[in-house]
Nucleic acid binder design. Structure first.
Lengths: 151, 151
DNA sequence: GTCTATCGTAGGGTGCGACCAATCATTGGA
DNA sequence: TCCAATGATTGGTCGCACCCTACGATAGAC
């Protein structure tokens, strides 16, 4: 049984492919971890954004991640339902919503961050600490360079 | 207009997330490139596998990539339709199909490999040649370690 | 005060990847 | 010779990312 057949060298030579494949590993694990708590990847991203800096509108929040504002509606709605976020109309512009973390949201974010760190540890297990640092540095630079929603 | 808002540091600290995000970059670009030629990511992967070593059955091929055999049917079917692959029943076991690249398939694979290399160049543009080597090495090791279909 | 633009929202459509059950031909062993 | 297992296939579901349109409420410019 050759179940341990290696991937073709020619395939492994394509960085975009390997990146996509390893990326799916990370995505799946993160998604699984979050699903246990009733959250999606976008939910987590938005939580960190709310913690980082309160957005002046949902539209700005959507732009930050390059997602469609109409898709953000569900994300924010879920966070509100779970009591992790709260919002009020901007008094200065009543079209906008000011969204912010609740104490429960901040606590949940802390928990999620811890679990994410544990997840990273298993994901990057085959690498030495130094190598992990190098990897995250390289990935951050790639992300920053290609950043916005530039597909 | 703060369209250039950075992603939250807490989010960038999660390797699994960054990996997923950068991975999507690679995936999208590869998929776009392949779509121009009527192919999917799996099609490309299978082409490289056929070139690397002829599988003894479609099931083995599916196992190599950890995908469902029923999903491989469409992939193989498309390659057959495009004349990139051919197959015949295994005389030793007529339940199995022996799939192989056609000359056209090999030529197409060469073309695709070239385009993939060009794509990699733009994707990894912000990195030095040495850094690119390091990155692919680290990614390969991650993939090898977690490999099978271990999600 | 009217007109245009913006914000949040509802609703719908697409494509892809993963997954599952059932079917038919074929095989190898009991 | 019959039976259980295997290979390829069909057909269907689910979830997710992405994208677009339309609409009511509000704001700002004129």
């Amino acid at each position: 049984m050759s179940d341990d057949r290696r991937l073709p060298p020619r395939l492994l030579g394509v960085s975009a492919y390997v990146l996509a494949r390893v990326g799916r590993l990370g995505r799946t694990r993160m998604a699984d971890m979050l699903r246990e708590r009733g959250l999606t990847l976008w939910d987590f991203a938005v939580l960190t954004a709310l913690d980082d800096a309160p957005p002046s509108s949902q539209r700005e929040l959507a732009a930050q991640f390059g997602i469609d504002p109409s898709d953000l509606v569900d994300v924010v709605g879920r966070l509100l339902d779970l009591g992790l976020a709260a919002r009020e109309r901007d008094p200065a512009d009543r079209r906008r919503y000011l969204v912010a973390l609740t104490p429960a949201g901040r606590a949940e974010l802390d928990r999620l961050t811890d679990r994410a760190a544990a997840l990273d540890a298993t994901l990057l297990a085959p690498l030495t600490p130094d190598e992990r640092t190098v990897l995250t540095d390289l990935l951050d630079r790639l992300l920053t360079h290609h950043d916005p929603r530039a597909v």
